[in-house]
Design a protein around this nucleic acid. Structure first.
Lengths: 222, 222
DNA sequence: ACCTGAACACCGTTCAAGT
DNA sequence: ACCTGAACACCGTTCAAGT
């Protein structure tokens, strides 16, 4: 209950708005009652619980496709969707390693996706890690500046304008020929970013499939 | 000068130790002199400068290999090495988009890596983005708990022990058959993580190469 | 014994008082 | 005019004073 309000506070106002005092206030509780309650001795522990809480959303209730490639694809797409909803998650994941029960269920789900693959267990881990890595990276870089949070839409908009014109100034020095040529291909719209994400995910999965087929004891192209 | 001390403070004591007051103290300056100086009106602007400062380290001074695949590989390996040195960077990159001059030089370098590829400019962006995404993701997930920072080596060690035994308890419930079977293949040592990183990077690059060769106007396998 | 509010040591930022 | 220290509104955490 308490971590749910912390999560929704982080969603709507950003991670820096999540303070022990504000969470307590949102619950109409006295500021310090959080410490007495629920095994939270430090703020970090609340963060741990928040991380694990969104891990529950990463689980695919309807189960996984049978082919490992489709399964990993589904997991990655789902994970990306969830992390877009909770942009603060990736700020936390560096320090707070996935350790709670929901995090472990997520790991279990991802491993189940490659369970049928007949390759070395270490290679399985590498494959799962690669996909997870790519997905988390996408979430880290794709923080949506057009999203609902967009702190103070007015000043944020101004900031983007200023950044843009500053970049134009730098480009006009001629130091960045390739950047200048890119121009409009820069991915800004969320739809573009999703297209890029899916493209790279396909490359990664295809490359892994080819490499595993080459080196596998049995080709296991299914 | 001022951002350099902020960077080294973040490296040695973590990002949360970087406060306007502490940076000023480290410089033997009065706490508020930072605001008067160097176009810093808010702490966020200091963070912007810190992000751009490490971007300078991302540049490969010796130039890039000619083949796009080797070039992207070199950029990714370099980027990973730098981000391992500055773990706090990825916490910042979500909010502070790459906008400074060094950040743009980095982008320019990455685009130069694929300049010879004769494919659509949008595909070039997708390729560059995919590699960058994967690399940043690795940095986000691979925060080194054995590293020199490892806040309060004593309590951190204890924490890891507690986490470990908690996981064992959960595994012993039998809810996680695949996780149980992984066991020792879990990547903990930095060397393991680097091996995994290189494996996934090869998959990604191979997959991209194959896909681009298929769909390119000219195959351009070079 | 347990909860809880005042208190402590910080933080980012402002702003008026000095030079 | 410009720098700067006190002041303000916060924060996480502690701890003694209440029930």
């Amino acid at each position: 209950v308490i971590v749910a309000t912390a999560v929704s506070l982080a969603d709507s106002e950003g991670l820096e708005a999540v303070s022990i005092r504000r969470v307590a206030a949102a619950l109409d509780a006295r500021p310090m009652s959080i410490y007495s309650f629920a095994a939270i001795d430090r703020k970090e522990e609340l963060m741990d619980l928040m991380v694990d809480d969104v891990c529950a959303e990463l689980l695919l209730p309807e189960g996984l496709p049978q082919h490992w490639r489709d399964a990993l694809h589904a997991v990655a797409v789902r994970t990306r969707a969830v992390l877009v909803r909770h942009p603060w998650w990736i700020e936390l994941i560096g320090r707070h390693t996935l350790v709670g029960p929901n995090g472990m269920r997520y790991r279990e789900q991802t491993l189940a996706a490659v369970a049928d693959l007949e390759i070395d267990v270490s290679l399985k881990m590498a494959l799962v890690t690669a996909v997870e890595t790519y997905t988390v990276g996408q979430a880290a870089l794709a923080v949506d500046t057009t999203g609902p949070v967009a702190r103070q839409s007015r000043s944020c908009q101004d900031q983007r304008q200023a950044d843009r014109s500053y970049q134009q100034t730098l480009i006009s020095t001629g130091e960045f020929p390739h950047l200048a040529r890119i121009g409009s291909a820069w991915p800004e719209a969320p739809a573009d970013r999703e297209r890029f994400f899916l493209l790279g995910l396909d490359w990664l999965l295809s490359g892994a499939k080819a490499a595993l087929a080459d080196s596998g004891r049995r080709p296991s192209t299914r």
